[in-house]
Computed example of a mutant assay.
Amino acid sequence: MSSFQFFGMQPYQADPSSQINAALDSIKALVISLDGVLTSGVITLDGEGREMPTLFARDLAGLREALRLGMKVAIIAGRQAGAFRQMLEATGPIDLFLDGEERLDAYEAFKSRHGLQDDECACIADDIDDLELLKKAGLPVTPINGAEYLRNRVAYISVFEGGRGCVREIVEMVLDHQGRWKYSEKQAQG
């Protein structure tokens, strides 16, 4: 086997989905960039300069289901994003890094807190400032509207935009692959 690795994974000569399936087997946690992934990336301010948080209900429902089934979740913002704290805390026990923490430091703290390894983490991020974080994760993902530079540097490109179902798709993909998504067509037919 070649010593070449793509984001720490051996490239397969077979269908690339076999590499994704192998990664999906190990996933126990989601690490999600707030801006551009959990949100559309648009920052809306009221007349007094306060941020007005907006999140897609389907993404939040997916996160609640992931948490209910024992997945660990971290949300990381590379800026002060405390306006989202109350809404995300109401979703469930999510590790929130919303005070502009350095992304890799937040990721390492999250892994340490839950005893996780890189290959047990799926990371969903959308821009070049997330590149080092994506390189570490076992399953690096970007939304379809993620930065062009990331497209050849992730294992999977979501068919949904950030803030419009990307998170839900990855939650379903992981849980369905692991046989834990009870709303699966595979389970309904089999």
Rank of each mutant, 00 (worst) to 15 (best):
1 M>L: 06
2 S>H: 09
2 S>D: 11
2 S>N: 13
3 S>D: 13
4 F>S: 11
5 Q>Y: 09
6 F>D: 13
7 F>E: 13
7 F>V: 06
9 M>P: 14
9 M>D: 15
10 Q>A: 12
11 P>D: 11
11 P>A: 07
14 A>C: 08
17 S>Y: 07
17 S>F: 05
17 S>R: 15
18 S>V: 11
19 Q>A: 02
22 A>M: 05
23 A>P: 14
23 A>Y: 09
24 L>I: 06
27 I>V: 08
27 I>S: 03
30 L>W: 04
34 L>D: 01
35 D>Y: 12
35 D>Q: 13
36 G>S: 14
37 V>T: 12
39 T>W: 00
40 S>A: 12
40 S>W: 03
41 G>F: 02
43 I>G: 00
49 G>Q: 14
50 R>A: 07
52 M>L: 08
55 L>C: 07
57 A>L: 09
58 R>H: 10
58 R>F: 03
59 D>L: 04
59 D>V: 04
61 A>D: 14
67 L>R: 03
67 L>F: 01
67 L>Y: 04
67 L>T: 02
69 L>P: 08
73 V>T: 15
74 A>H: 05
76 I>D: 00
76 I>H: 00
80 Q>R: 15
81 A>E: 02
83 A>I: 08
85 R>K: 15
88 L>G: 01
89 E>S: 07
89 E>F: 02
90 A>V: 03
94 I>C: 06
96 L>M: 11
97 F>Y: 15
98 L>M: 10
99 D>N: 14
100 G>C: 01
101 E>L: 03
101 E>N: 12
104 L>M: 14
105 D>N: 13
105 D>E: 14
105 D>L: 11
107 Y>V: 12
107 Y>D: 12
108 E>D: 15
110 F>D: 15
118 D>P: 13
120 E>M: 08
124 I>D: 04
124 I>F: 04
126 D>Q: 07
126 D>E: 05
127 D>G: 03
128 I>R: 00
131 L>K: 09
132 E>N: 09
133 L>F: 01
133 L>K: 01
134 L>N: 04
135 K>S: 06
135 K>D: 06
135 K>Y: 09
136 K>G: 04
138 G>D: 14
144 I>Q: 09
144 I>W: 00
146 G>F: 04
147 A>D: 10
147 A>G: 04
147 A>W: 00
148 E>I: 06
148 E>V: 10
149 Y>E: 11
150 L>G: 01
150 L>Q: 00
150 L>P: 01
151 R>Q: 11
154 V>Q: 02
156 Y>L: 10
161 E>D: 13
162 G>I: 05
167 V>S: 02
170 I>T: 12
171 V>Q: 07
172 E>P: 13
177 H>M: 07
177 H>C: 05
178 Q>G: 06
180 R>F: 08
182 K>S: 09
182 K>Y: 10
183 Y>E: 14
184 S>W: 13
185 E>L: 12
187 Q>C: 02
187 Q>G: 07
188 A>Q: 15
188 A>V: 11
189 Q>G: 02
